[in-house]
């Protein structure tokens, strides 16, 4: 198809990629879309991700209480979609840095860190010792 100078026709793959990058990766909006509607979609996506992260990190979410959605959305904005475990982990690290971890949230994070290693770059993965314990328990 011809993506020429006449506008956005053709090359669906590139158009979809530009849209996803704009919605979840902080890239600029692709031309032709209503900016306010993309902004609303971005917000809805963040709320959905923060809700899923709250399910995976109940004590962390409870600790932040009514401020959870605002705090979690601000942490997740512009970060690629990575699943509830990692999303919540990023929120937990931000909350720790801001001195906002409650006792329950601190325990939740410590429990996760005992089993999983997460460096903020690669997805969380099981620590060798935890993997060994899991094998022995089988």
């Amino acid at each position: 198809m011809n993506a020429g100078a006449n506008g956005p026709a053709g090359d669906l793959a590139a158009r979809q990629a530009a849209l996803v990058a704009a919605l979840v990766d902080g890239a600029p909006d692709p031309p032709g879309f209503a900016a306010d509607r993309l902004a609303a979609t971005r917000e809805a996506l963040l709320r959905k991700r923060s809700g899923q992260a709250a399910t995976a990190w109940p004590l962390l979410a409870a600790g932040l209480g009514p401020d959870w959605a605002r705090f979690a959305c601000s942490v997740l904005a512009g970060r690629p979609v990575a699943g509830a475990l990692r999303d919540g982990w990023d929120v937990a690290l931000a909350a720790r840095a801001a001195g906002r971890l409650t006792e329950g949230a601190r325990r939740e994070l410590a429990d996760r860190e005992r089993v999983l290693r997460y460096d903020g770059v690669r997805p969380p993965h099981r620590r060798p010792i935890a993997r060994l314990r899991g094998l022995l328990r089988r």
């Binding site: 198809m1 026709a9 053709g10 669906l12 793959a13 590139a14 158009r15 979809q16 990629a17 530009a18 849209l19 996803v20 990058a21 919605l23 979840v24 990766d25 809805a44 996506l45 959905k48 991700r49 690629p80 979609v81």
Partner: peptide, 18 residues
């Protein structure tokens, strides 16, 4: 998903022939 990224959501396709 597109360009190697998950949208984490269901996104609409353009209603075009393509």
């Amino acid at each position: 998903q597109a360009g190697g990224r998950e949208a984490g959501h269901l996104l609409p396709v353009p209603r075009t022939r393509e």
